[in-house]
Design a protein around this nucleic acid. Structure first.
Lengths: 268, 268
DNA sequence: AATCATCGTTCCGATATTTGGAACGTTATT
DNA sequence: AATAACGTTCCAAATATCGGAACGATGATT
């Protein structure tokens, strides 16, 4: 069970340990709130002494990770953008996958995503779409639940039945649409099926009118577990259409994993 | 000089204070290296004891800000993307400026940027362009020098002559092209001119073949200092063309500052 | 305009974490 | 196989954090 040791803790809040961990927990708390948040409000949500919280916030501001607004509310600092820009540009998996994502987009004409598993969330690493109707950055970096996204289910299908079983009770199955799978057992069955078929689906489970097909990608040692998907509005993605994408997505995933083995060396 | 107190320290490396500051310095060091970097290499660059560095790295990995690769090299973690995604989406100034940037793009047909001053750097907050030839994320979050970018010079023109004077010795004037201003005195004159004219230029100072016109935007208290710009390849941006953009950029900047006053309230 | 309540900041002894040198395994190289 | 370089662990000493309480600022209410 060595691999478990450094696994990121569940995406739930406030279990950071050490000085850094506590500070990042505060940062996360500000991030989760999608608008400027004031001192007292933060104080209420993280149970810490006033003095302590005040110093932590000051340190975060000093580092440029937070900014204080005129009304003493806190927002995320632009320095985070700089870090992320580097994290994105230098991510080896993303660089390797990129041409394959582009090809998949050309073959299907639809939006293609790549998302990596982190704890109980999927974080989108890349996106290829034709029309720039939706804003850039609209998806990259976004964190979505594993249980109602194609990429999330595909990623989980990389893990063993037992590992998934252990995750289930920590997942907060929340109903997003009438099609969302909210029963852990049903969900587990869907993962089993994805594992044997090599593809996972999202039929309007996260958002009404949006469907997708996804396939898993991972390193041999499962230290990197992710998924790629083709997403389209439901009216363009009937069952027959979706079925036609399955092989394309699977092949793209296989090609990416091939490249990963060749360029990064086989892992364990 | 109260305003100086919490100003982000110069973008140079390794002057973080406190436990958090030191950890973020290490993170920055990894970020600056554009490829995976190994323990010993980090050790050489930050003069810290082995044991200390080892623990700091472990903590950063534990928090998901770094990842360790199979060969013990370190890369930035995807958790940074999640933070940045929120920082971008929720940035009030960006949200306010966005429609104006779009309009400016429509009026000129060229790429429009918005960048904010942070220490001695400009960090790009937004970008609007028609063709998606260049990858998304290609610019956002990017940190560029103040002294050879239109946005950087525009931003500096918001500051007093004295403040700029104090910054000069800390700026590492590096020659990017034959047109780069590498003499502090000449550069200071350019800023003075930008201050009186309300626009700054970049005539292939950062990159051969790229020119731009930029205008400053800022809050009354200068806690937010930024610039917007229209950028184009030199063959499409002759002197007459650029001159035609000046008023458009200035007007867009004025409109953004109007909106800022209305929506955020006048600051100081 | 004055009062009161809420909010944010500062202070300092107690506490827990970090620090840093050295010794110990582990992996690559000759 | 021997050697060197690298990464990890350990623990007493140093130091930053912790956290309660007092203080000052802000702004809402009468």
């Amino acid at each position: 069970m060595e691999a478990e040791r450094t696994r990121p803790r569940p995406s739930g809040s406030a279990n950071g340990t050490g000085t850094l961990g506590k500070a990042i927990d505060v940062l996360e708390l500000v991030a989760e709130t999608d608008e400027p948040i004031r001192f007292t409000e933060i104080l209420r949500r993280c149970d810490q002494p006033r003095g302590t919280l005040h110093r932590q916030l000051s340190n975060l501001v000093e580092e440029g990770l937070l900014v204080v607004n005129r009304d003493h509310s806190y927002s995320l600092g632009v320095r985070l953008l700089k870090f992320a820009s580097k994290a994105w540009a230098n991510n080896e998996f993303r660089v390797i996958a990129e041409p394959h994502l582009r090809r998949l987009h050309e073959l299907t004409g639809e939006t293609v995503h790549m998302g990596v598993l982190r704890g109980l969330e999927v974080i989108y690493l890349d996106k290829v779409e034709s029309r720039q109707a939706v804003r850039m950055y609209s998806q990259i970096g976004n964190a979505s639940p594993v249980f109602c996204t194609g990429v999330g289910k595909a990623a989980l299908s990389c893990l063993s039945k037992e590992t998934v079983e252990e995750m289930l009770p920590r997942i907060a199955f929340r109903r997003f649409t009438e099609h969302t799978l909210v029963d852990p057992a049903t969900f587990a069955k869907a993962i089993d099926r994805a594992r044997s078929e090599g593809v996972a689906y999202d039929r309007e489970e996260h958002e009404i009118g949006i469907r997708c097909v996804a396939a898993p990608i991972h390193t041999a040692d499962r230290s990197f577990v992710a998924g790629i998907s083709v997403t389209a509005p439901a009216y363009r993605a009937g069952e027959e259409t979706i079925a036609g994408w399955v092989d394309l997505v699977r092949e793209a995933a296989a090609a990416i994993m091939d490249d990963m083995r060749n360029r990064l060396g086989p892992r364990v």
